[in-house]
Design a protein around this nucleic acid. Structure first.
Ligand SMILES: [Mn+2]
Ligand SMILES: [Mn+2]
Ligand SMILES: [Zn+2]
Ligand SMILES: [Zn+2]
Lengths: 154, 154
DNA sequence: ATCCATCCAGTAATGATTACTATTTAATAA
DNA sequence: TTATTAAATAGTAATCATTACTGGATGGAT
């Protein structure tokens, strides 16, 4: 869980972005961001939709998709998790990387000085200009490891 | 372009895998792998389909999807390129990483001792067991940089 | 309080991927 | 070589996430 303060700060930051970009700070947008900014679990669209619906029952799925695209476009959130079918989101735009469980999809944050200082190899630099580094550690989370050990259940 | 020898070697390796796993080494499967093993451009399904169709006009798109899934499952190929909609494939299973052009989708290979020796941070190790590291440099390729500079043309 | 460009809800459309099924084929042995 | 048969394919339908469309609603500037 993210602190209420931190969440509020992110929502306020987006309201400022709205003013600057001449975009309306609607109830729906704030609730969607508040939902994403208040969790560390990197939820997918469907999950965000279900949760926001508890507060705005009539909200449409398209609004969630549209808003998340807007937020990403404005640099307020990022999308994470490759390969898999469903896109997942992250309101934490600080520099950090992810551990992804190949089994259950759990995504956890970690930081790394080595990666942050990673010098772009000449070989890569020759291909073009590098804007960012996307790193993902793939494996099996603790919970899934435990479950694999238990031969009972079933 | 990959050398004919190298391509043939990969196809032969897959035939061995088929024998071991009791899977049929069909004409379609060999041609699909041959197509992927013969290029460095990390093509998507549609591209592979179009190209294989030149040699097997009646091949179905589903067969291409099914075969690529099989090849990946057997560890003969990998899928690369995150976020984006269309999945792209790579027959090169040697340890290497990718540069991805955010504009045109061009994908290039590079190697890195630093990344290969990358020690998994404790923070990440605590989340579970790590099987692999996926690294992607994102930026703008030379070609797209050039085109952005030319204000003429439209 | 009014006005209007922007936004939203509801729903249809799209596009990639997967599933289904009748027919064909690779592999094995007679 | 031919017969046998489980597995694979072609053709097509279905699915599922995401995006587009449209008439009605609303934020926010005046
Ligand atoms: Mn994160
Ligand atoms: Mn590659
Ligand atoms: Zn897990
Ligand atoms: Zn490019």
């Amino acid at each position: 869980m993210i602190s209420r303060d931190q969440t509020a700060k992110r929502v306020a930051a987006f309201q400022a972005v709205c003013r600057i970009h001449g975009v309306k700070a609607t109830h729906q947008r704030m609730e969607i961001l508040r939902e994403l900014a208040g969790t560390e679990e990197h939820p997918d669209v469907e999950t965000i939709y279900e949760r926001v619906r508890r507060r705005i029952p009539a909200i449409s799925l398209d609004t969630v998709y549209r808003t998340l695209r807007l937020l990403e476009e404005k640099g307020v959130i990022r999308r994470v998790g490759s390969i898999k079918d469903r896109t997942r989101f992250d309101a934490n735009t600080e520099r950090h990387h992810h551990f992804v469980c190949a089994q259950c999809g759990m995504i956890g944050d970690f930081t790394s000085d080595v990666l942050d200082r990673f010098p772009v190899p000449r070989e890569a630099a020759q291909m073009g200009s590098v804007d960012g580094v996307y790193v993902e550690l793939r494996g099996r989370c603790r919970k899934c490891q435990m479950e694999a050990k238990k031969p009972e259940k079933r």
